[in-house]
């Protein structure tokens, strides 16, 4: 590198008014004061949380918000989960614990005897929802769960089903189950047309 390649930058000379710094301070304060005395604007900015939620202002995307989980029920009211362990395998935080049992119903092999999600360890990434082949586990737009003990936030199957009952109004079970249960259990005529017709 030669010397004449170097570009020397000089600071611009300040005018006497700029050297005082006061006009700039006043200019900044003007913005502050405008915000301070404009009550309407101030009211528009602050979000009055417990009284005014994001549902009220329409800012919550209920269809794909990643909140607390739920376990969906199928149209017969049974738990839709088939205990395939896809969600607990996909989970990066290892917060899903499933114990499978033999299903009492003829249309599937297994069902979850126990289904626990540690909501405190969960990072709400939604990979369980994507992994689920029967769309049994879904994330709800519910974000206001806190607890005083760690045990309270380990949600078991009954609580997850309860959350489904309470949130199915604001977020219906989104995807119809495309996977045919019949293929996993007693295989009948369904084998001829796997996954061709949607059940719901």
């Amino acid at each position: 590198m030669r010397d004449d390649d170097i570009i020397v930058l000089k600071e611009p000379e300040l005018t006497p008014a700029e050297r005082l710094y006061l006009p700039q301070i006043l200019d900044g304060l003007k913005t502050t004061l405008r915000h301070m005395f404009d009550l309407q604007r101030r009211h528009a900015v602050v979000h009055q949380y417990p009284e005014q939620t994001r549902e009220d202002t329409g800012e919550l995307r209920t269809a794909n918000y990643h909140g607390v989980h739920r376990l969906n029920k199928d149209p017969d009211g049974r738990v839709a989960c088939v205990a395939c362990f896809m969600c607990s395998t996909a989970c990066p935080a290892h917060c899903i614990h499933i114990e499978a049992g033999e299903s009492p119903w003829p249309d599937r092999e297994k069902y979850p005897v126990q289904f626990d999600i540690d909501e405190l360890r969960c990072i709400y990434c939604g990979l369980c929802e994507e992994a689920c082949p029967v769309d049994a586990i879904e994330l709800t737009p519910l974000y206001e769960l806190v607890s005083c003990t760690r045990e309270e936030l380990i949600l078991d199957k009954e609580k997850l089903l309860q959350i489904y009952e309470e949130t199915k109004g604001i977020k219906p079970r989104r995807n119809p189950p495309v996977t045919d249960y019949g293929l996993t259990g007693t295989q009948g005529l369904d084998v001829a047309e796997p996954n061709m017709k949607r059940k719901v």
Binding site: Y49, P50, T53, E55, L142, Y143, E144, L145, V146, E152, L155, K159, Q162, I163, E165, E166, T167, K168, G169, I170
Partner: peptide, 12 residues
């Protein structure tokens, strides 16, 4: 049962 928070408005 699980408590669903103060701001949560429930099923409908």
């Amino acid at each position: 049962r699980v408590e669903l928070g103060a701001g949560f408005r429930g099923a409908e």
